[in-house]
Simulated assay, not measured.
Amino acid sequence: MFFDVIITDWIKIRRSVVWWIMLAVPIFISIIGVNNYMEHLDVFQKENLLGWMGAWTQVEFLYGMVLLPIVISVYVSLLCRYEHLGGGWKQMLSYPITRTSVYLSKMVWSMILVGLTNVVMLVVFLALGSIWGVQGEIPWSTFLTMMINGWIATFTLIAIQLWVSTQWDNFSVPIILNFIFVFPNIFISNTKMGMFFPWSQPVYAMTPADRLEYVQPLPYFYLAVCLGFLIFIIGGLWHFHRSEIR
Rank of each mutant, 00 (worst) to 15 (best):
W163Y: 11
W163K: 08
S165Y: 10
S165A: 14
T166E: 07
Q167W: 11
Q167S: 14
W168P: 00
W168Q: 06
D169R: 15
N170K: 12
F171R: 02
F171G: 01
F171V: 03
F171T: 07
S172R: 10
V173I: 15
V173Y: 11
P174N: 02
P174A: 05
P174Y: 00
P174Q: 12
I176R: 07
I176P: 10
I176E: 04
I176K: 01
L177Y: 13
L177V: 10
N178V: 05
N178E: 05
F179D: 00
I180Q: 01
I180D: 02
I180H: 06
F181E: 04
F181H: 05
V182I: 15
V182E: 06
V182Y: 14
V182S: 07
F183E: 04
F183V: 15
F183Q: 08
P184Q: 01
P184C: 13
P184Y: 06
N185L: 09
N185Y: 13
I186C: 06
I186D: 06
I186S: 10
I186G: 01
I186W: 14
F187I: 11
F187Q: 11
I188S: 07
I188M: 07
I188W: 03
I188E: 00
S189R: 12
S189A: 08
S189W: 11
T191K: 02
K192G: 12
M193P: 00
G194A: 10
M195G: 01
M195K: 00
F196E: 02
F197Q: 05
P198S: 04
S200A: 10
S200Y: 01
S200G: 14
S200D: 14
Q201S: 08
P202I: 02
P202F: 02
P202L: 03
V203T: 09
A205N: 02
A205C: 01
M206I: 15
M206R: 00
T207K: 13
T207R: 10
P208I: 09
A209M: 13
A209L: 12
D210V: 10
D210P: 00
D210N: 14
R211I: 08
R211E: 07
L212S: 05
L212V: 05
